[in-house]
Design a binder for these strands. Structure first.
Lengths: 207, 207
DNA sequence: CTTTATTATACCGACAGTCTGTCAGTATTA
DNA sequence: TAATACTGACAGACTGTCGGTATAATAAAG
């Protein structure tokens, strides 16, 4: 039996199915046949809409990161809120509950899904970095912080936190706390801020 | 015709063949059959010595990073040389000419080889981090630098530099120079050093 | 100290099972 | 009647397994 749908509808149905499977079985562990069955379509249909399995992955990542970047943009845009507050909210949005769910994050960090992880990280960095950089710029303008290289500070902290904190579940509680404190300590230094000036604002984020 | 060799000899022959192929065709682009042919052995032999293709990758990474870690250890151990000098030599050893050759590094950063990249990074970080941390510790003891979290500084800078600088060929010359200057700037801050105190020592490294 | 059994080690290649991507053709909608 | 969406059989490739075979190492017998 054949059901015809608009291309965009089918496409996102396929993405839904694939995302669900990637969450539970990982990227490499999910076969195109799995996706076919989950989406209830034939082989040809999949390849009518996507040119390869990796193409599906890219689309999913685009979808996932897109909403994160949108959220980050929105937070950064609230010019009435103080900069520091927006910075912490940004971190919150990007790391603690980043809307991707726990399972998928766990999957993303399995070695089998290195490709997925790398692609997400690259895409997220590209999208979010200008926003963070601008925010730091505001901070500098207001005399809250100071650095000659805001972009690189953003890069460095984003990369570090997305490598370390995403894996944080692995570490023990003490380890975890140390990492967080150290992160704040280092961020203060990179942003040329007084010691402990961020401490109070950020610490509550990481429950 | 059948040639019998000692297991270790065969094993490293297989690794040689695989490494060569991974360099030119990438990990995913190299089939086990390719390795078979290159090494001049039968299918069963490969799987007699290694339990999977990924197992081969792990062994290669172990071999490659092993020598890098050894070199880093050696440099760090030269207690008569000043700390700052050893730090720069370390960076040199780990990044500019890291003994892995240009082609393989280029391969490592292709998206197809994300797994390889991630594994190398993890393995290298684990091996090198304690050494760098100790070096920073020496620096602190001698009053050259100061931080409450040497391990995390080491982590952060190593991760950042291995993500950014390895991809540096991509960037333009100006971009490249900016990244390097920024890196030094940030490192100085993380290590609680005076501005430009590292500048003179490190800059010449990145030709 | 040879020669002959015996065991352990290294090796082989056919094969099963799975997977991705293609294509010629068919149904549905515009 | 043309464009769009869909189908499922199929080719080609790839990974890992397995029963069996040759070589080297060791032990037993002459």
């Amino acid at each position: 039996m054949r059901v015809v749908k608009e291309a965009n509808v089918r496409k996102s149905e396929i993405l839904d199915a694939a995302e669900l499977l990637f969450e539970t079985k990982g990227f490499d562990g999910t076969s195109t046949t799995d996706i076919l069955n989950e989406a209830g379509i034939a082989r040809g249909t999949l390849y009518y809409h996507f040119k390869s399995k990796e193409d599906i992955l890219d689309a999913i990542i685009e979808r996932m990161t897109g909403s994160l970047v949108a959220k980050a943009t929105e937070i950064a845009g609230k010019k009435d809120e103080p900069v520091l507050r927006r910075m912490t909210q940004m971190m919150l949005a990007l790391h603690v509950d980043n809307g991707l769910g726990y399972e998928i994050m766990e999957q993303v960090h399995k070695p089998q899904n290195a490709l997925m992880h790398q692609k997400m990280q690259e895409r997220l960095l590209a999208g979010v970095n200008p926003i963070i950089t601008a925010l730091i710029g505001e901070g500098i303008a207001q005399g809250i912080c100071q650095t000659d290289y805001p972009t690189e500070v953003a890069e460095m902290t984003f990369l570090y936190s997305s490598t370390i904190f995403d894996n944080l579940a692995i570490h023990s509680v003490e380890e975890r706390e140390r990492k967080i404190t150290a992160f704040i300590y280092n961020l203060e230094r990179l942003l040329g801020m007084e010691r402990d000036s961020l401490q109070g604002a950020i610490l509550p984020i990481f429950g």
